[in-house]
Simulated scan of single mutants.
Amino acid sequence: MQQAGTSASSNHAMHWNRADWARCYREIRRLQARIVKTDTGRQGEALQWLRAHSFSGKVLAVRRVTENQDKRTPGLNGHP
């Protein structure tokens, strides 16, 4: 039986303002450095997939989009 208010993705549930942003940036920077060091191939693709699907990558992407006010971003804020 599942508890009320829980879901499969709740393992990373957290309050937005209490996020450890320095850790998120550090993890993504570390992954990016590993991607640059690898040759083109499966290992680079795997690291890129990991960067895109990691929790840190997701929250930083959301943060970048939501905090980008009035920067004329295509598709946001009514800009073509």
Rank of each mutant, 00 (worst) to 15 (best):
M1R: 05
M1K: 07
M1L: 08
Q2Y: 07
Q2G: 05
Q2H: 12
A4G: 09
A4R: 09
T6P: 00
T6M: 08
T6D: 07
A8L: 13
H12P: 02
H12N: 14
M14L: 14
H15F: 14
H15K: 15
H15P: 02
W16C: 02
R18S: 14
R18G: 08
A19V: 15
D20S: 11
D20K: 08
W21K: 13
W21P: 08
R23S: 14
R23Q: 14
R23L: 15
C24H: 06
Y25P: 00
Y25A: 13
Y25L: 15
Y25K: 11
R26F: 13
E27R: 05
E27D: 15
R29D: 09
R29N: 10
R29Q: 13
R30F: 10
L31D: 01
L31N: 03
L31E: 02
Q32P: 03
I35S: 01
I35L: 06
V36L: 06
V36I: 14
V36S: 09
K37Y: 03
T38Q: 07
T38Y: 00
T38C: 12
T40F: 10
G41V: 05
G41H: 04
R42A: 11
R42L: 10
Q43M: 10
A46S: 12
L47I: 01
L47H: 02
Q48S: 05
Q48A: 04
Q48E: 09
Q48W: 01
W49P: 00
W49S: 07
W49G: 03
W49M: 10
L50A: 14
R51S: 03
A52W: 00
A52Y: 00
H53W: 07
S54T: 02
F55W: 14
F55N: 06
S56L: 00
G57S: 05
G57K: 00
K58T: 10
V59L: 03
L60A: 03
L60C: 07
L60R: 00
A61C: 10
A61R: 09
A61W: 02
V62G: 03
R63Q: 05
V65M: 12
V65E: 10
V65S: 09
T66M: 05
E67D: 08
E67L: 03
N68G: 09
Q69G: 06
Q69C: 12
Q69P: 00
Q69K: 12
D70F: 06
K71C: 11
K71V: 11
R72V: 06
R72T: 08
R72E: 06
T73F: 12
P74T: 05
P74K: 03
P74R: 04
L76V: 09
L76N: 04
L76D: 06
G78D: 07
G78H: 03
H79M: 07
H79Y: 13
H79W: 09
